[in-house]
Amino acid sequence: MENRLRKLKQALNHTSFNTLTFDQEHRNQVMEKIAGQDTRPEQIRLSILQLLVQEETGYTLAGKIRSRGIKTFENDQGALYTTLHILEQKRCIQSEWKEDGQKFYQLTRKGRKLLKKYESSPDKPRVLRTLVEAGQI
């Protein structure tokens, strides 16, 4: 039996495991799940930038942040506006008052560039840090 079991590796690799590979797509899905659950400030700011590729009011943005599983602003809506203000000062986003009295937020060109840089960067944590460090990016 011992001799035969030595061939178990080959046997399983040729049969049950033949088509079982953990590929890039699987890995990406894991990283997305992790990002969705991550509530570190830089991750939250990244989420905000990702959501602001289209125009949002603070209210609609808060809803979308919540649906990403981020509960940070649940009981502290004010903190969201503080964060938006900081991102605006970093010139990653811009705001505009519309005629109906609603304030809309959207990415600036700089914000877009930063997102692109994040997506293609091999050192993502470093790009993220620029979002929480003081001063301009």
């Binding site: 035969r4 079991l5 061939k7 178990l8 046997a11 399983l12 040729h14 049969t15 049950s16």
Partner: peptide, 14 residues
């Protein structure tokens, strides 16, 4: 034949 042997062993283990 090899396939049969592999399947037999893999199947028995599983």
């Amino acid at each position: 034949i090899q396939n049969h042997i592999d399947h037999e062993l893999a199947g028995a283990v599983m």
